[in-house]
Amino acid sequence: MDVIVDNFDLFAQGWLRTVQICFYALLGALPLGILLAAARVSPVPFLRSLGGTWVTIFMSCPLTVVLFFMAFGLPEIGIKGSYFWFGTIGLALYSASFVCEALRSGINAVPAGQAEAARSIGLSFMRSLNLVILPQALRSSLPPMTNAIIYLIKNSAIVGAFGVGQDLFAVADTLTAARGLSALPVLTGVIAGYLLLVLPIGRILSLIETKVAILR
């Protein structure tokens, strides 16, 4: 307990850093995931295969490989940038495919008649997606979406290892390796930090879930 109290500011900084990574990654992954899902269910074959290819690549590629590409591949071909953005964008690109699949499962759960009715009153594909399909799909994809978001949060620890550092997990390294503190209390603090992030989000999402539960 002393370890956590004594190094509270370091834990707090690390926590904030992790929150930053997660926030920006989510900010990218959500809209991108929605676009990908839209592409995957669109009537345009080119968009469908584009979305499918994207998801296949990023779902079969380990996150570390994606991040390695971002942190070391891009500078190699002359693209310079901060590791924070390399890592965060890498995480966003990777997580978007999971957001997409969560949404797509939701879209598939919306009865086909809803789309037919939307088209029948003259709504375009994008409009029927926006106004009819997605609002219903979002509700049924909340549970898999919650998982995707929680995975994103946990994966932020991997982003930390690609030059970003100073995130919650890296705090453990600093305290144990550089400052020689015992691993157990340090890791307890780190776990508490992640719980502090994951639990409220899980709670909020399950609240939303019950709020918007759809009548059929």
């Binding site: 290892a161 100073q166 890296a170 144990t176 550089a178």
Partner: peptide, 25 residues
């Protein structure tokens, strides 16, 4: 290096540690 003494000790010299410090395993 992540968790290296050198990294830990250079931080006080940095004007903006969050952005100036890059750490790898």
């Amino acid at each position: 290096g992540i968790g290296s003494i050198d990294g830990d000790k250079i931080k006080p010299y940095l004007a903006d540690p969050t952005n100036q410090m890059v750490e790898f395993d």
